[in-house]
Simulated assay, not measured.
Amino acid sequence: MFAVKVPKREAEKTRRKLIELGVLAKSYSVKREGEFILFPVTGPVEGFEIVEAEFEKTKRRPHSYREVVEVPEEVRPLLPSSFDIIGDVAIIELPEKLMPYGKAIGEAILKVHRHIKAVFAKGSKIEGEYRVRELIRLAGERRTETLHRENGIRLRLDVAKVYFSPRLATERMRIFEKTQPGEIVFDMFAGVGPYSILLAKKAKLVFACDINPWAVRYLEENRKLNKMPNVVPILGDVRKIAGRIEADRVIMNLPKFADRFLREAMLSVKDGGIVHYYGFGPEENLFFEHEAKINGIAKGLGFHVEFLDERKVRPYAPRQFNIAIDFRVLK
């Protein structure tokens, strides 16, 4: 086939030009001949030295585990199109009919995604005071601790002992962009610190509370790992801490039960301070019930609220969404 022959020093510039012209034969591998590079092309290209050469077909790596996994055809449509990646650990939700093929699915994920070292299936819903779930090992290393990177910070955690969702990375960055330098922040349900560590880059002080001792242990480690001495980890029930902190900004990332802690949030925020509230809502009525509860608690305390922003964060279940409401508290 036809090839463009150029000296090695001109290879990158030539490659970009051939792509721009739409003549680079991408299904074939580039070839090296001494001090020259040969690019496979679809036909003669004006302005370049053209030679004839034989090229090997490019070996395309599969993009999805579904391309390589071996399962019966009747269950193939049930294969999930996505899964969570936390550090080098993958967590996938499998329908019951796919569980007998869990090992094959896990090994396929490891084969396609080389940076993943362990694969687990969700064995239960998130439950209990610590918001954790049972995990079933499918393939890879026998460990659940990992180091996760997002938004320029590092977070060490054990996916079997603490709650963590990588799907909230964009939402965490949204709050970071709203945070002003020098603020005092109260992260009411901090976990291992994905909000706290990130916001500490701007905030003067971040009080980070969680009732799970494992979460606070990792929070302590992550504070040191990211060199954030202005994060103050607090182990305990947030109801015993509320009112003792006066924050400019309060984070309420506990969507299933956040409405039960609205009073504590409002008592912990300064006059004019902002609360970032998270909840779950049905598609046909995303915000109304949450707004009513927020207004009701504020009225009972003699406060007023000003709603600043409402948004869908992500789908949670069929016709259900994780939602965010930002509001200002006026005392």
Score class of each variant (00 low, 15 high):
residue 1 M to Q: 14
residue 12 E to S: 13
residue 13 K to A: 14
residue 14 T to M: 08
residue 14 T to L: 07
residue 15 R to A: 12
residue 16 R to S: 14
residue 20 E to K: 15
residue 21 L to P: 03
residue 24 L to K: 10
residue 24 L to M: 09
residue 32 R to E: 15
residue 32 R to S: 14
residue 34 G to P: 09
residue 40 P to D: 04
residue 47 G to M: 11
residue 48 F to I: 04
residue 48 F to A: 02
residue 50 I to E: 04
residue 53 A to T: 07
residue 53 A to R: 06
residue 54 E to M: 04
residue 55 F to P: 01
residue 55 F to E: 05
residue 58 T to I: 12
residue 63 H to G: 07
residue 66 R to H: 02
residue 66 R to D: 04
residue 68 V to M: 04
residue 69 V to I: 02
residue 69 V to T: 02
residue 70 E to G: 09
residue 77 P to R: 09
residue 83 F to W: 05
residue 84 D to H: 03
residue 84 D to R: 03
residue 88 D to L: 01
residue 92 I to S: 00
residue 100 P to S: 06
residue 103 K to D: 07
residue 113 H to C: 05
residue 113 H to Y: 14
residue 114 R to S: 07
residue 125 K to E: 14
residue 125 K to G: 14
residue 127 E to G: 10
residue 132 V to A: 01
residue 142 R to N: 03
residue 143 R to G: 01
residue 143 R to L: 05
residue 147 L to S: 06
residue 148 H to W: 10
residue 151 N to H: 08
residue 154 R to E: 15
residue 155 L to V: 04
residue 158 D to P: 05
residue 160 A to S: 14
residue 160 A to T: 05
residue 166 P to G: 11
residue 172 R to A: 09
residue 173 M to T: 11
residue 175 I to D: 05
residue 176 F to T: 04
residue 194 P to M: 05
residue 195 Y to V: 08
residue 197 I to V: 07
residue 202 K to T: 09
residue 203 A to W: 12
residue 208 A to H: 05
residue 210 D to M: 13
residue 212 N to I: 13
residue 216 V to T: 13
residue 216 V to G: 06
residue 222 N to K: 07
residue 222 N to E: 02
residue 224 K to W: 13
residue 224 K to A: 10
residue 229 P to A: 03
residue 230 N to T: 10
residue 232 V to M: 15
residue 232 V to D: 10
residue 232 V to K: 15
residue 232 V to E: 15
residue 237 D to Y: 04
residue 237 D to N: 13
residue 240 K to L: 14
residue 248 D to T: 12
residue 249 R to I: 00
residue 257 F to G: 13
residue 264 E to V: 03
residue 266 M to I: 06
residue 267 L to C: 01
residue 268 S to T: 14
residue 271 D to L: 02
residue 273 G to E: 01
residue 273 G to C: 08
residue 273 G to I: 01
residue 276 H to F: 12
residue 276 H to S: 06
residue 284 E to N: 15
residue 284 E to D: 15
residue 293 K to M: 09
residue 294 I to V: 15
residue 306 E to I: 08
residue 308 L to T: 08
residue 309 D to A: 09
residue 309 D to C: 05
residue 311 R to Q: 08
residue 313 V to W: 01
residue 314 R to V: 01
residue 318 P to A: 08
residue 326 D to Y: 10
residue 327 F to W: 11
residue 330 L to Y: 00
residue 331 K to M: 00
